[in-house]
């Protein structure tokens, strides 16, 4: 079925869990509408929680895709890859892409997620680190870590710890330089922390607590001739590894929304129906802070189940609904009877 001439144009920024779910729901609810996804990614949507599989030898991106290319053709969802949004003009309902194209929208859903946060004092060492937020980053990281190689994780968050589980399982050595973000996004009390750290050690992760990484250097004597890394701590101790991977949580990708006429704190502020303060603009996923009446504050809800539910809810509301947000998963981190860490974050389908 062709899009009707006066059908609405729904634009979604982001092809992650939230954006992709929203596009599917929008297509279901409004069969005539145009649905366009804008994304930085050069690949179609894949589940990021699958990425640790690269260390199990899965390196072909086709194995990671959530849907085949035909899905997008059949659902008439246009995915504009490698298309960075540079700005949004709320009143004019236009989006400016960095490559200078302008796109008009009737409704806009911002689902731009977050990008790996790196503390300021380590920013200069970014080129020497191997982030793990996308398929290409994951494959590039896996390519430099040899069999039984040594990975140094800085910070550690639930994304990093999930990867650590795979690395230990695949007989790699993992050293975690722990810090305040080690269990991000879970909020962990000082009482809970030692138990959780002990559980990590039991899992096979070497944990260094209370040591601040002060620098990273490239060294040449890596295994198989690959260059490797040396981490220098502020107390002048050193640690050698094949790769240094930063995991300090995510910071919302909102820079292109500055000047759009929507309210921003750390993320885009939305009401319980996921509407922003900008006319015709909604937000979902890691990028948004939702008003919680119970807590009387705007707050983030993380984890892929929450994010997918947000994408679905935002789309239903864009299509005329007015339902409030209800979290789709609990946020409790605990140690199971087997002594292993259990997080709702790690429950995949």
């Amino acid at each position: 079925m062709a899009n009707a001439k006066n059908a609405r144009h729904h634009v979604v920024i982001g092809s992650g869990v939230a954006g992709s779910q929203a596009a599917e729901t929008l297509r279901e609810r409004e069969p005539e509408a145009r649905v366009t996804i804008l994304t930085l990614s050069s690949l179609l949507f894949y589940n990021r929680y699958d990425l640790p599989k690269v260390f199990r030898g899965h390196r072909d991106w086709r194995e990671f895709l959530a849907f085949p290319a035909e899905y997008y053709k059949d659902h008439r969802i246009v995915v504009r890859r490698c298309s960075r949004v540079a700005g949004v003009d709320g009143p004019r309902r236009t989006i400016a892409l960095e490559h200078k194209e302008e796109i008009r929208f009737d409704t806009l859903l911002v689902a731009s997620g977050g990008r790996g946060y790196i503390p300021e004092e380590l920013a200069e060492f970014r080129p020497l680190m191997h982030p793990f937020a996308s398929y290409t980053e994951a494959v590039s990281a896996a390519a430099v870590v040899p069999e039984r190689g040594h990975v140094i994780m800085l910070g550690g968050d639930m994304i990093g710890l999930d990867l650590a589980r795979t690395l230990v399982d695949t007989r790699h050595r993992v050293t975690l330089v722990a810090g305040p973000q080690t269990f991000w996004p879970h909020e962990v009390t000082d009482d809970e922390r030692p138990g959780l750290i002990a559980a990590l050690e039991k899992m096979g992760v070497e944990v260094i607590e209370s040591a601040d990484a002060g620098g990273i250097a490239s060294i040449e004597q890596g295994a198989r001739g690959l260059s490797a890394r040396r981490v220098l701590f502020k107390d002048r101790t050193e640690l050698y590894g094949d790769a240094v991977m930063p995991f300090f949580g995510l910071s919302p990708s909102v820079e292109f929304m500055l000047g759009s006429g929507t309210d921003i704190e750390r993320g885009l502020l939305v009401n319980p129906a996921l509407r922003t303060t900008g006319e015709g603009i909604w937000a979902a996923g890691d990028v948004c802070q939702i008003w919680s009446d119970a807590e009387k504050r705007y707050r983030f809800y993380y984890g892929w189940k929450n994010v997918r539910a947000m994408g679905d809810l935002a789309a239903r509301n864009i299509a005329g609904g007015d339902e409030p947000w209800v979290p789709a998963q609990d946020e409790k981190l605990h140690i199971g009877s087997d002594g292993k860490i259990q997080s709702p974050f790690w429950e995949y389908e």
Binding site: V79, R80, E101, I103
Partner: peptide, 22 residues
Amino acid sequence: KSLVKLPEGGHMSAHVGPGQLP
């Protein structure tokens, strides 16, 4: 990146099919 402003669809990225690699 274009040097001049483009209308919607004026850039190749709008025409990359879902199976093709940009």
